[in-house]
Design a protein around this nucleic acid. Structure first.
Length: 844
RNA sequence: GCGAGAGUGGCGGAACGGCAGACGCGCCAGCCUUAGGAGCUGGUUCCCGCAAGGGAAUGGGGGUUCAAGUCCCUCCUCUCGCACCA
């Protein structure tokens, strides 16, 4: 017998597939198109087990959809700009471009060794000018539409990466990449106005029915919409007003003080010449020292200081003191709040601490609240308005609506919506990224680089010192240029773009990756978009996935495509963990895919990573379970090889025998065959349950192995019975059908093994040119069904009956069942529940 | 605090409200082998029992139902996300 040797089979097929690949086009029925995309990798050096899992999932989906007749786009590329390359340059003196390209070629070869069926002709690499050209072009389009703008503000700064971070890139106060504590830094930088799309991004979440609920929740939280009102509080001396944002305008009568953020621009004006001035300045300075980490953990004492100034509550007309409080955030709402101690816990505690009155304006249902004795605030949005002038007596909800109306009518305020989402700061003070296509001219100011001068090339000769500051600023040749407007001297912007810019539209570039005069071709994008199935890690729940949705909407509004969401269905696969922790160099629990592939082969690596856990769950690495996957493939190999001769001979027969001609043995096999088709197909359709699909294939294997065992003995070619029943031609064709079906169903999971065995069954064409088999309904029914017999809901016996037997006959047989006798003897049957083909429950 | 998800054998995990534990790993016994970290066969939730069989069991408690891992209520634990967001 020929042994299963993956080291022979796998490289051979990989080479052939690559050579024989026919690329997909936009021709043909769009209903049959299927865009399967996995998040492209950063070329860090070598692939890890997380990649293996990710790309295997994508490949199984792509291959199975192709077998089912879909027109599948399954591309791959490289998210190639980024810090590790630049750090390598600083530490090892190798240029980021060389480092990156070297990694790409190595990782590409690794992916090919996994047998992933990518269309490599569409490969894209974001650090190449043919790609980042269009980053710059999109930036200019956004600049034209005021969706890209420059402003000075306080930004998240990673002291290790020496660059700015977007809010989305700060995780628990630390850098998303290197985990260093993030500080604040005042800088002038470029922003994308993602907030202009806040409402649409939020509303779109409701229509993304193919996304996991938790990702949508994270996006909704991140956008953080809150509805309320802006209210103007006049200063007591009539020198101006302070605008606040509140979600509870109904509690306006209970506002007994105001608080400003320490950074609020009005603070200095309010305290001018006041005896409190020195104390307030000291307080503001102290609050400014509070770092982001402390603020995030809420680990500081709430405190405030009186400014010496009062404002007028616009509804009561009463003067209320203005405080500065360290917990009021400048970058949310207006940086100023009205404080209602009776109905906000923070205000309540603050009022108690500083002896400010508590005024109750919303009563609970049983009217038991008393301002003097409340132990806590009553923050519920329920109950009745009290002590609220003309609004007294209304329900809380009604009061809220009426007060907003009243404010608007008297121009004291208006209904507004606030979002937590901030504009996306994209400037990075690093080298290895897309240059921002902007010039600064002494005469003309900020000047966008004209489209026809794109791309602004990233210069190669830049010193990598690691001392901080934008490296591009060191290249005089790059910086100094002429102004396209006045012809005078100008200097270039030396910051580069956040690499999340690159990945925010790459899925569109794949649809027409070789376009040279536009980012993509509209017809191609309209054909392929949106992505039917997107697969990647949960860690991008808000970062990449939110940015991509934003870009898609901007690109739509630029009139370039009709897609308004990029990804119809999203699968977020779990991490690969070992010994309970994510694999990482520092923990020393890394399994190298190369070692796995060398020892067991790509098919085993693929099968294991799909079988050991459902795709969304974390996958615990288990060396022994890998052995199990390998064992299964060896068994399939032996089974098919042992019967190859028989199958080739049987292929003369046109089709396997139908029910009336088939021997009982053939019937058993045909039933199992079609039931397996049904089960595997359903598991793939229904949430990609690869683990149960593979389990079904294992069961099918077990059955075939059992089925042929008594007949074939160990002769290796067992049409002739050793001593049992004589095998018929029908049996042989049924076996041929079973083995072919097993291979086709297994082929998306273990492509090399199945392709090789397919050839050994005498086929000339590729197994991937086959059609996915269809289950024939008449074989899905069992010859006999098992009826569960229950007494009072407890299993007491079972009955094997033909499926067409009616209820009455089943009951007659049940009552005669000796096992049931002890339970029904001397009892009356009160009720019978019969579930056809399943069970009979007798209540006695 | 708010939100989402999860809790089932020794382990990974299966179960349209209808046989709990499919499939695999591990373990036990046997076969085959000069040998086995190969292969094959059988067994493997727990308790009582020689067995036939019986009982218990899906984080705890309660409920709906002829029937609950699954639906409802409640509590506990864990994971993830958001968080002085006014």
């Amino acid at each position: 017998m020929i042994k299963y040797d993956h080291t022979q089979i796998e490289p051979a097929w990989q080479a052939r597939w690559l050579a024989q690949q026919t690329p997909v086009t936009e021709e043909g029925d769009r209903d049959r198109k299927y865009y399967c995309l996995v998040m492209f990798p950063y070329p860090s050096g070598r692939i890890h087990m997380g990649h293996v899992r990710n790309y295997t999932i994508g490949d199984v989906i792509a291959r199975s959809q192709r077998l089912r007749g879909r027109h599948v786009l399954h591309p791959m590329g490289w998210d190639a700009f980024g810090l590790p390359a630049e750090n390598a340059a600083i530490e090892q003196g190798v240029h980021p471009a060389s480092w990156t390209m070297h990694n790409i070629s190595y990782m590409k070869q690794q992916l090919q060794r996994l047998g992933i069926s990518y269309d490599w002709k569409r490969e894209i690499t974001t650090c190449r000018p043919d790609y980042y050209h269009w980053n710059q072009w999109f930036f200019l389009k956004m600049y034209e539409r005021d969706l890209a703008y420059r402003k000075r503000s306080s930004l998240n700064w990673c002291p290790k990466c020496l660059t700015v971070l977007a809010n989305e890139q700060v995780i628990d106060g630390a850098c998303w990449r290197c985990d260093s504590a993030v500080t604040q830094k005042e800088l002038e930088q470029w922003f994308l106005r993602i907030t202009a799309y806040a409402e649409e991004l939020l509303a779109g979440c409701d229509r993304l029915t193919g996304w996991p609920e938790r990702v949508l929740t994270m996006q909704r939280n991140w956008i953080g919409k809150s509805e309320g009102a802006e209210v103007k509080f006049p200063l007591q001396d009539r020198s101006g007003t302070i605008t606040i944002f509140t979600t509870r305008p109904d509690t306006l009568y209970g506002a007994t003080f105001m608080s400003l953020a320490p950074e609020h621009p009005l603070v200095e004006r309010l305290i001018q010449g006041k005896p409190e001035a020195a104390a307030v300045r000291a307080f503001v300075q102290e609050a400014g020292r509070l770092d982001r980490t402390a603020r995030l953990t809420g680990n500081f004492e709430k405190a405030g200081v009186f400014t010496g100034t009062h404002a007028i509550n616009p509804l009561t007309g009463q003067p209320i003191p203005i405080w500065v409080a360290n917990f009021v955030l400048m970058d949310y709402g207006t940086g100023a709040i009205m404080a209602v101690p009776a109905h906000d816990q923070r205000d309540f505690e603050f009022a108690k601490k500083y002896g400010i009155p508590v005024r109750l304006v919303v009563q609970n249902g049983d009217r038991s609240l008393r301002a003097e004795t409340m132990p806590d605030a009553y923050p519920e949005e329920a109950g009745w308005m009290v002590d609220s002038g003309p609004f007294t007596g209304l329900s809380q909800a009604e009061g809220k609506a009426k007060i907003i109306g009243h404010l608007a009518e008297h121009t004291l305020g208006k209904r507004t919506v606030n979002y937590r989402l901030r504009d996306w700061g994209i400037s990075r003070q690093r080298y290895w990224g897309t240059p921002i296509p902007i010039l600064y001219c002494d005469a003309c100011g900020v000047v966008p680089v004209p489209e026809e001068q794109l791309p602004v090339l990233l210069p190669r000769d830049v010193p990598f010192t690691g001392k901080g500051g934008s490296p591009l600023a060191e290249s005089a040749e790059f910086v100094q240029t002429t102004c396209p407007r006045c012809g005078g001297k100008a200097r270039r912007e030396t910051d580069t773009m956040d690499t999340f810019f690159d990945s925010s539209w790459y899925f569109l570039r794949y649809t027409a990756p070789r376009e040279t005069d536009r980012p993509f071709r509209r017809e191609a994008a309209d054909y392929w978009m949106p992505v039917d199935q997107y697969i990647g890690g949960i860690e991008h729940a808000v970062l990449h996935l939110l940015y991509s949705r934003f870009f898609t909407k901007v690109i739509r509004d630029l009139g370039l495509t009709s897609a308004d969401e990029p990804f119809t269905n999203l699968l977020t696969q779990g991490m690969v963990i070992k010994d309970g922790a994510k694999m990482s160099k520092s923990k020393g629990n890394v399994v190298d895919p190369n070692v796995l592939i060398e020892r067991y082969g790509a098919d085993t690596a693929r099968l294991f990573s799909l079988f050991a856990a459902p795709p969304e769950k974390d996958l615990e690495w288990d060396d022994q379970a890998v052995e199990g996957a390998s064992r299964f493939l060896h068994r399939v190999w032996r089974l098919v090889i042992d019967h190859a001769g028989q199958v080739v001979r049987a292929s003369g027969a046109v089709s396997p025998p139908d029910s009336d001609q088939a021997s009982p043995r053939a019937q058993t096999l045909r039933r199992a065959t079609h039931q397996t088709i049904h089960k595997v197909t359903a598991d793939l359709d229904r949430h990609f349950q690869f683990n149960t699909a593979i389990a079904a294939l294992m069961e099918f294997y077990n059955l075939i192995a059992q089925w042929q065992a008594p007949v074939s003995g160990n002769s290796g070619d067992g049409v002739k019975a050793a001593g049992g029943a004589k095998a018929t031609d029908g049996d042989a064709t049924a076996l041929a059908e079973a083995l072919r079906t097993l291979l086709v169903l297994l082929s998306p999971f273990a492509p090399h093994l199945t392709e090789e065995l397919w050839q050994r069954l005498g086929h000339r064409g590729s197994i991937f040119a086959e059609h996915w088999p269809e289950a024939e309904p008449r074989w899905l029914k069992d010859e006999l069904v098992t009826i569960i017999l229950q007494i009072n809901g407890k299993l007491r016996s079972q009955l094997q009956v033909p499926p067409e037997l009616d209820e009455l006959e089943i009951e007659t047989r049940a009552l005669a069942d000796p096992k049931l006798q002890p339970w029904i003897e001397g009892k009356t049957i009160r009720k019978r529940i019969y579930v056809p083909g399943r069970l009979l429950n007798l209540v006695v």
